[in-house]
């Protein structure tokens, strides 16, 4: 794995208000990394710092492949939480503006319109599109450049399940194509299904980071297993020697329908660490 971004001790304040404190992490090439946190946790501020829109008041961010003699300038695609589209112009005209700026061919726009299923809306003015379609135009614009890293700031916030699913598919395709994705979200299902690694951000600090499954396992302090018997009866029993007899009985009687460890999901991990919910 090659490190693309190395952030060390990033801090940021607006006046006396601390927004970010001592944020350190790395982003490896080809991974989908998720930044999870409730509204106001500092996610957008961190993305603004990483994308050079904001200068951090402390710490450093190094971008480009490590180990190279000359630090390479990364091509970045950015999808912001606000759409920033020209509402009177058509979908195609909006994309054409940025294709001209990036020196991208019209052919690439057409391919992206197909990938994002916006072909039928090609000549429709943006102010006549639904929120979900605007979200896809926004993503389409971020994908115009053949980016090394894609920053997606709450890409599915407020979108319907069908559009959310389409956007998730596109993110997976990008990842398969080797693009690194930096995703901010407060949707833990999105993070669990899409991200290779996640960072949990609360009040400007990273409170936990790692592979989603590992984080959940680490916080399985209850040490219980959940057993569902045929007929729908559910039992939560200690993951300890005293449960052996009960389990053996159920197995002998072929009563067990499913058996699960009872580690918490990311939402509950976050709740346990911070006392807040991600969707707060």
């Amino acid at each position: 794995m090659t490190t693309l971004i190395r952030a060390e001790h990033i801090a940021h304040s607006f006046g006396n208000q601390k927004i970010l404190e001592d944020i350190s992490f790395t982003v490896e090439r080809g991974e989908v990394i998720g930044l999870l946190g409730p509204s106001g946790a500092g996610k957008t501020t961190l993305v603004n710092i990483l994308t050079g829109q904001l200068k951090a008041t402390g710490g450093s961010v190094r971008t480009g492949e490590e180990g190279r003699r000359e630090p390479a300038c990364l091509e970045t695609g950015i999808m912001m939480d606000s759409f920033g589209l020209y509402e009177r112009l058509s979908v195609w005209e909006n994309l054409r503006i940025f294709a001209d700026i990036y020196r991208v061919s019209g052919e690439r726009i057409e391919k992206l319109l197909d990938r994002t299923q916006l072909r039928t809306a090609r000549n429709t003015a943006v102010n006549k599109l639904s929120k979900g379609m605007r979200g896809r135009v926004n993503l389409c614009r971020a994908l115009l450049k053949d980016a090394d890293i894609l920053y997606l700031d709450e890409p599915t916030s407020g979108l319907d399940p069908a559009t959310t699913w389409k956007i998730h598919q596109l993110i997976r395709e990008e990842r398969e194509g080797g693009t690194t994705v930096f995703l901010t979200t407060h949707n833990m299902h999105e993070a669990e299904t899409l991200c290779d690694r996640v960072m949990l951000l609360n009040q400007g600090k990273i409170v936990e980071q790692g592979v989603p499954g590992d984080i959940c396992t680490r916080h399985n302090s209850r040490g219980e297993i959940e057993v569902t018997l045929r007929g729908g009866e559910k039992h939560v029993i200690p993951n300890a020697p005293e449960s052996e007899i009960l389990l053996s009985t159920w197995i002998r009687e072929e009563k067990i329908l499913s058996i699960h460890s009872s580690e918490p999901d990311l939402e509950n991990v976050f709740l346990r660490i911070t006392g807040r919910r991600l969707c707060d």
């Binding site: 994308t51 829109q53 950015i78 912001m80 606000s82 759409f83 920033g84 589209l85 020209y86 509402e87 940025f98 700026i101 990036y102 614009r141």
Partner: peptide, 13 residues
């Protein structure tokens, strides 16, 4: 207001 200027500036304009 519509954030389009911010997007343009992020696109190296």
């Amino acid at each position: 207001e519509k954030n389009t200027l911010r997007v343009l500036l992020m696109a190296d304009v």
